[in-house]
């Protein structure tokens, strides 16, 4: 039951085509090629509230993506959310007094981390933590705060 040469060749071509299609899809149509993987360093920041920030959410400076969120965890002692981020090594001169904010793209869009560079001459290195952070703006809290404030003002005026 020897397969003849033509059949072997055809199945070889088929296998090759299939694997090429996989590679093409993986690199062109998924985030595989965009992965911030080996050439990156890790920084972290603590927030009181990260809202619905997810893993792999973008980290941006001035609206340009420089890295992505690696993990969102809760510190069991302080009950703060600890966000670990991977930043591409191309951006290795970010000052260490940079501040981090949880922002929303558009009115109802996804959450992302916005970095606002400070003025320090020291740069961030692998494992550093950002100390100046600003939590997510949660729409419900905002609305209830506004209602509460106006109510309190009215009461004070009376």
């Amino acid at each position: 039951m020897r397969a003849n040469y033509k059949v072997e060749l055809a199945s070889g071509i088929f296998l090759l085509l299939g694997i090429l299609a996989m590679i093409w899809l993986a690199t062109r149509a998924t985030n595989y090629g965009q992965e911030i993987g080996k050439d990156s360093y890790e920084i972290s920041a603590r927030f009181g509230n990260v809202a619905e920030l997810k893993d792999r959410a973008p980290v941006k400076i001035g609206g340009v993506m420089v890295g992505m969120v690696e993990a969102v965890e809760l510190d069991p002692v302080t009950f703060e959310a600890v966000v670990t981020m991977r930043i591409d090594t191309r951006f290795d001169e970010i000052p260490n007094d940079t501040s981090a904010t949880i922002l929303t793209s558009g009115v109802l869009g996804d959450r992302y981390v916005g970095l606002e560079p400070g003025g320090s001459f020291e740069v961030l290195e692998d494992g550093d933590e950002l100390f100046i952070t600003q939590s997510a703006v949660v729409l419900e809290q905002l609305i209830s705060k506004y209602l509460f404030n106006t109510q309190a003002k009215e009461e004070a005026e009376e």
Binding site: M1, R2, A3, V7, E8, A10, S11, G12, I13, F14, L15, L17, G18
Partner: peptide, 19 residues
């Protein structure tokens, strides 16, 4: 080797012909 060759041949018959 014969399992491999047979499998390749069938890959052509069932796979490549469905392409």
């Amino acid at each position: 080797r014969s399992t491999l060759v047979n499998t390749l041949q069938q890959t052509y018959l069932v796979g490549a012909r469905s392409l």
